[in-house]
Design a protein around this nucleic acid. Sequence first.
DNA 1: CGCATAATTGACGGTTTTCAAGCACTGTGG
DNA 2: CCACAGTGCTTGAAAACCGTCAATTATGCG
Lengths: 252, 252
Amino acid sequence: MDKPRFSTHRSQCDPQTILDASTEVDCEDCGLDPICMVLDYAEEASGVPEGVLLRRRPVERGEIIFRQDDPFRSLFAVKSGSFKTSMENGGQSKRVIGFQFPGELIGVEAMSRGKYPCTARALQNGSVCELHIARLPESGRPLEALQAAVIELLGKEVAFNHQLVSSLVHQSAEQRICGFILSLSSRLAHRRLPSLEFTFTMSRTDIGNYLGLASETVSRVLTRMGRSGAIHLQRKRIRILDRNALEQCADG
Amino acid sequence: MDKPRFSTHRSQCDPQTILDASTEVDCEDCGLDPICMVLDYAEEASGVPEGVLLRRRPVERGEIIFRQDDPFRSLFAVKSGSFKTSMENGGQSKRVIGFQFPGELIGVEAMSRGKYPCTARALQNGSVCELHIARLPESGRPLEALQAAVIELLGKEVAFNHQLVSSLVHQSAEQRICGFILSLSSRLAHRRLPSLEFTFTMSRTDIGNYLGLASETVSRVLTRMGRSGAIHLQRKRIRILDRNALEQCADG
DNA sequence: CGCATAATTGACGGTTTTCAAGCACTGTGG
DNA sequence: CCACAGTGCTTGAAAACCGTCAATTATGCG
């Protein structure tokens, strides 16, 4: 469990640079890890040609990893930086589906559909691991184990979405935003990144779009929460002062 | 593809009895079909002991198929009738997660979690097919194919939920209800059940809870749509008069 | 420095919720 | 068969909430 795998690079977690390109999650904190483990990819003797199946690469802010309706090629894991996925429905308004942070996966929902249902864009400079699915058979690993890992991933995605749908729809603007902040915080904490003070890498408009609120409402609620003392807010930087208050609000 | 499988019983689709226990979907219209196909379950020579792995049974109105936090045992496919799944969050309000109609699956979201995240209850008399997952290995079928089928199912679930989230959150009460009606209609049509005139087997409160609306709002919107001539509504029975109007409203 | 974009703040109006009352339907028991 | 209670459905009025429009300020980029 301690052996080095594809990338073990890990820099300091300076609060000022959190979510910056220089901070990468450990492989063991990565959502692709279950699959990586099966592949035993970083083992020297694994025999899997490096760079073919799993490839790490930097991405620039604004770069698009894949577009909606592109044929499904790969799963991506965020090594550093942050991303957003969005969909457009029939040439109408663009809708933000989700945000992805270090250790999380992008493209899972395309796996059984053959093409990506959404577009994935980098919110800042960062890096991703790309798992080239079509080449999986070349790995010589038992398909069963790989499939089991995929089922695990999909299951988590389903559970997360159920939670999301059942909460978003029933909550007020304030509850949604509290929940959103707590969700970001706990996801960062889960990967051992600073979780009490971090940067919103997405715009207010993106947040509002994701939560089903107008950007003005997001702005208003955030300043209100700042005045109440639950958070400290400065531009895109947030510090959680009273996590208890947030939790109480979100669970309303 | 035409050979009889587990149950081929199929009665007439009298509008008066639609969604009644007497109407069962064909196996080929059932969500478990991909798995069933792999198992080749109904083949006499399949060697799979009947009634152990896959079991069909009637359920009564109000009966609970499984409860939230029960350990995961089985997948269920609705053969006839209709069901609702709901969750309670920390002893607070109960939230309706979804409704299931003939041919659809119940319990998918528990598959990779080990326990059911919600409670499933029959809205009327009906019947289900139960696929006992723990006994799958006994079937002697290649695990690969079964897993592939499961991945397929999970993927559909993810896609459906993405669609749901991104639409519900952004839509007005009227749009949500139009979408809800159209969704029911198309799901019934997909299984070759009458789709222009059918019965709401769930209460207004359940609909509202599912869509994130007060039951009064559901009631008001429905009567407004009745007055506008898009639908004809009588008690729990609905007839779609102007499908175009509904689609236009839902997509707004 | 100046433009373009994003964020904030205020005022207003529409939609939805809440509270409350009356009605319709269901099923039970006399 | 009818009366009754219980539940769910409908409808109304007032208030809360949020979205839209608009103006101002801040920020990032050339």
